[in-house]
């Protein structure tokens, strides 16, 4: 394996917390192995900062395998960096050149309040899940394979939508900070399957309603979300969400409760 070390200059957004003003600060990442991941490079920079008694750069991360959805920030304006279908933890320094100048910014959206530096609060996405990103029936133990017949195409589409890791890159990349791709992925992954069909209308109404209440913008279908998505979630999901929401809005029936005289 040909190992090569490079130097890159980082211009990083530093902000102590929501209340204080943030600003960019430059750091030199020296002698970085091209086999290092982007986060390992930041680890090295942080080691140096800590040894100098300075505050290390805060960034979210967990599995570092591209599957948990914790990491993510903007590198030169692109969510998760320049590569497609990649989380920033799976982005390696071999994709950069010696002497590169990299601007690191946190996800920016009114619905994602600043926590610190490159870390933002993405619980708005959790609250969207909370109002409809589930099925209420008890599905019991894992059923026998093919006990419930599901067309292969539906299973494939549902699975593709289910690969969304909720990292928030779609919101960060969207010029409107819209959460349409995220919300629609969740709506699709449940709605395409028979167990999720029962609540398909209620789910669309609740999740779209919550998405709007959280202050995410509208979808302009620029496609930036899908292009930045580490899991390549398709825009077709947004179309399905719009369709479900429209159908649900015009066919909404009143719920009958006990004691209503029925």
């Amino acid at each position: 394996m040909s190992e090569k070390n490079i130097n890159v200059t980082l211009k990083v957004w530093r902000q102590k917390n929501q209340r204080e003003e943030g600003k960019f600060k430059e750091y030199l990442a020296k002698d970085i192995s091209t086999d290092a991941s982007f986060l390992e490079m930041l680890d090295a920079v942080n080691e140096e900062l800590i040894s100098k008694g300075e505050d290390p750069i805060a960034f979210d991360h967990d599995c570092r395998e591209g599957i948990c959805g914790s990491c993510g920030f903007m590198i030169n304006g692109n969510a998760h960096g320049p590569l497609k279908s990649t989380t920033v933890c799976q982005l390696h320094m071999r994709n950069f050149k010696d002497g590169d100048y990299l601007t690191l910014e946190p996800w920016r959206a009114a619905a994602f309040p600043m926590i610190k530096d490159l870390v933002v609060d993405r619980t708005a996405l959790d609250r969207i899940i909370k109002v409809g990103g589930f099925i209420s029936v008890n599905t019991g133990n894992a059923p026998d394979g093919n006990a419930i017949p599901i067309p292969k195409t539906a299973a494939d589409e549902a699975f593709n939508a289910a690969t969304c890791i909720g990292c928030g890159a779609c919101v960060a990349s969207c010029k409107n900070a819209s959460a349409a791709l995220f919300t629609s992925a969740k709506i699709s992954h449940l709605g395409l399957l028979p167990q999720g069909q029962v609540e398909v209308e209620k789910r669309a109404l609740n999740m779209v309603g919550q998405m709007d209440r959280e202050g995410f913008g509208a979808c302009t279908s620029t496609g930036s979300c899908s292009a930045s998505c580490p899991k390549d979630i398709s825009l077709v999901n947004i179309a399905r969400m719009n369709r479900d929401y429209m159908k649900a809005s015009f066919s909404k029936k009143p719920e009958i409760h006990a004691g209503d005289g029925a």
């Binding site: 960019f24 304006g77 009114a110 010029k175 620029t222």
Partner: peptide, 22 residues
């Protein structure tokens, strides 16, 4: 108006290359 408010703080750099909007 709503979309501007949703964005909040603007980015120093906008998406470019494959990840940019047309």
């Amino acid at each position: 108006k709503q979309n501007r408010e949703s964005r909040g703080h603007r980015y120093a750099m906008n998406p470019n290359g494959q990840k940019a909007a047309s």
